[in-house]
Nucleic acid binder design. Structure first.
Lengths: 156, 156
DNA sequence: ACCCATTACTTGTCGCGTCAACCAAACGGG
DNA sequence: CCCGTTTGGTTGACGCGACAAGTAATGGGT
């Protein structure tokens, strides 16, 4: 069955063009700043952040993957690199011997904290400070709505 | 000088989290659908689209790079692949012998047109149809504002 | 007329992410 | 108490993109 999807009108096209343009520019900009100033990719930054924010000092790979909006293979690779650089440590989980626990090392926490101000400054300069409070609220609603669709699309 | 950037408040954090979550999910989703159904990456799709939309049947690399929100190296690589697959053709520009002209082949146009309905359907399902008209307008404003900052940030 | 800077693009390298395949442990029905 | 299935994670291969470096043509200043 081919349910004939309607073309986009001008209003829809404008939104779509703005959106696609944004996400071909924004990730690159974030990666550039973090890489240049802190030697971290944005995703590495997110992983370290989620680890630090966790109430429990150690997290399972699956939980960390979920928290950092990623996949297990991707997380596994990046944890391998981060471990080599001494920023995280992995240890087998005693309760479930299939599982792996990850935790932030002292070096990892230090590097993360060092990198935060520059990252926040960039996020403010490029996005947050450019928007009005009403736009911030609107953006939250919009992204939450879209993200709901995206997450249910992830696992068919 | 270190002008002490303020932390984010709850409103700002919510918007930022929503945004970062979205652009770690959306590009993957678009690539997946296009790759599966049409053997194209989203960026390849954009390149072909811009070529087809051009009033002139042929475009300079620089113009195409700008239109597809990309860089010259990236575009050069992807044009190489697309040319190998017979979807585009490159020829030296007669007026400026440094320049290269790209144009869509018949096969390229056909493949593009084949791929459009599925792509639009995905864009609708994941984004457009999830939003109200007011949200679409808001999204256009927001992304245009951010994109302005991003583009001026690109070339310091 | 010459030279240096700029423009236009290409190429190579490297690192990251996706996917598929794999392994091992735990579960659960018969 | 098995044995098939599900869950948790790792690994390898491959492709794409960023960046840096290189080439070639153009143009602007003197």
């Amino acid at each position: 069955m081919k349910p004939r999807v309607p073309r986009m009108n001008d209003q829809e096209s404008a939104a779509w063009l703005g959106l696609t343009t944004m996400f071909s520019l924004l990730p690159v900009a974030l990666d550039r700043q973090l890489q240049r100033d802190s030697g971290l990719t944005h995703f590495e930054f997110v992983v370290l952040s989620r680890l630090q924010l966790s109430p429990d000092p150690t997290m399972r790979m699956t939980a960390l993957a979920e928290a950092s909006v990623s996949t297990l293979p991707r997380l596994s690779h990046v944890c391998g690199r981060l471990e080599k650089r001494g920023l995280v440590e992995r240890s087998p989980c005693p309760e479930d011997r299939r599982a792996t626990n990850v935790r932030l090392t002292t070096d990892g926490r230090r590097e993360l904290i060092r990198s935060i101000p520059g990252h926040i400054a960039t996020a403010r300069r490029l996005v947050i400070d450019a928007l009005t409070p009403e736009q911030l609220d609107a953006l939250t609603d919009i992204t939450n709505t879209i993200n709901a669709r995206l997450t249910e699309d992830r696992t068919p």
